[in-house]
Design a protein around this nucleic acid. Structure first.
Lengths: 207, 207
DNA sequence: CCAATAGTGGACAGAGTGTCTACAAACCTT
DNA sequence: AAGGTTTGTAGACACTCTGTCCACTATTGG
């Protein structure tokens, strides 16, 4: 019987435990953080932890799930519109969300928790992206030259690589708008252009 | 005083411990694997483990370091040549290496070990890639439109996303040559083209 | 062959886990 | 503002895993 979330104490306790896990994971690495470390930083009794979560992994899972829910809420209205063109609005919203929840994103993107959190995040974004690609292809009557699932994976991989660079750099190298613009130009037009070359890229045959 | 590697027993023991860690991590996740699990699967005494490695993390680190050394040896001759054009030969060699060391790559790319292994791998590849990009730009007299470090990060992120898809898919969806060709076309020409659109991509202003 | 080195099983203290209990404190309702 | 309900707390418990040490055996390379 996990405590009710309406209670002020419950909200406070969960927030404290969440923040303690995130900050400690960034400082020392998730694996070396003990439940007692978490409750000590949160200034709570160790027994309290177990009233809310079964273990450390459970807490991490809920941090990620909550973050993903929040992100989906912010993305929902934009995704509808972007099925028409390559607006970049969803990408920008991810950068803004990451800016608001910097430490949680850093913890996840670093792969803390044996990559479970990162896989959960990547899977959700990849599935949503593939859906957008599919809808756009049908709407515009074009046929993707590469499997939409692979396209989505590659795009999410590229996006998260740049996002993680942007979050770990200190100080923040540029506002989210600029980071997104850079990423989109690179991604849409390709590496050949971004490296400074012009004209048609070569057709590599690496065999 | 770690044992000498020339001894046949030492080689055998290390190989067994390495394989046990990799297979167990894939089955149950790195965090839940104990040193005793490892030695049991390797059919060795637990004390033997500590004669070779200080702890589980140490073993993981050495697995990654050895793999990276092996990869660098295979990449060295190709990288010189590819400073001239976008040949894709280094990318292909990575896919071939991953094909040979499938399980180790899967363990690393999943982020086992709180992402330490993956970060180590990513950092090495990103630095090497940035160097190639820089050399190519100078050799060809072009100026990259985007910071070479960001370019390298994005490219490695894209590459590892596709590689991880290719390794986790069962059965293997295509030979390494085809996977590399697909990845290179996508990466060099960009997402707009890969999604089936033609002509100039839009210039997104996501502000 | 044999000196040196690697592997073994068992014992050890210490740290962390997850559970439980009985009690104190804070909450929401009315 | 009182009161029944829920949450937070400290401490104790058995358990697992860690990392170290020892004396002993087995294998190796020279």
């Amino acid at each position: 019987m996990p405590p009710e979330a309406g209670d002020r104490r419950v909200r406070r306790t969960r927030r404290l435990l969440r923040d303690a896990l995130v900050s400690l994971s960034l400082e020392r690495g998730y694996a070396t953080v003990t439940v007692e470390d978490i409750t000590e930083r949160a200034d709570l009794g160790r027994a309290t932890f177990y009233k809310h979560y079964t273990d450390k992994d459970d807490l991490l899972d809920r941090v990620v799930t909550d973050l993903l829910d929040e992100l989906q809420d912010r993305l929902r209205p934009l995704v509808q519109a972007s099925e028409v063109g390559f607006t970049g609005k969803p990408a920008l919203e991810i950068f803004r969300h990451a800016d608001d929840e910097r430490d949680a994103y850093r913890m996840i993107l670093r792969g803390e928790g044996d990559g479970r959190a990162l896989r959960q995040f990547t899977r959700a974004q990849t599935e949503a992206t593939a859906e957008v690609f599919r809808a756009r292809a049908e709407h515009e009557g074009v046929t993707p030259r590469i499997s939409v699932d692979v396209l989505a994976r590659a795009w999410v991989g590229e996006q998260l690589a740049v996002l993680s660079w942007w979050l770990e750099e200190d100080p923040r190298p540029m506002p989210p708008e600029d980071a997104t613009r850079m990423l989109l130009d690179l991604s849409l037009r390709g590496r050949y252009w971004a490296n400074g070359f012009e004209g048609e890229p070569p057709v590599p045959d690496p065999a």
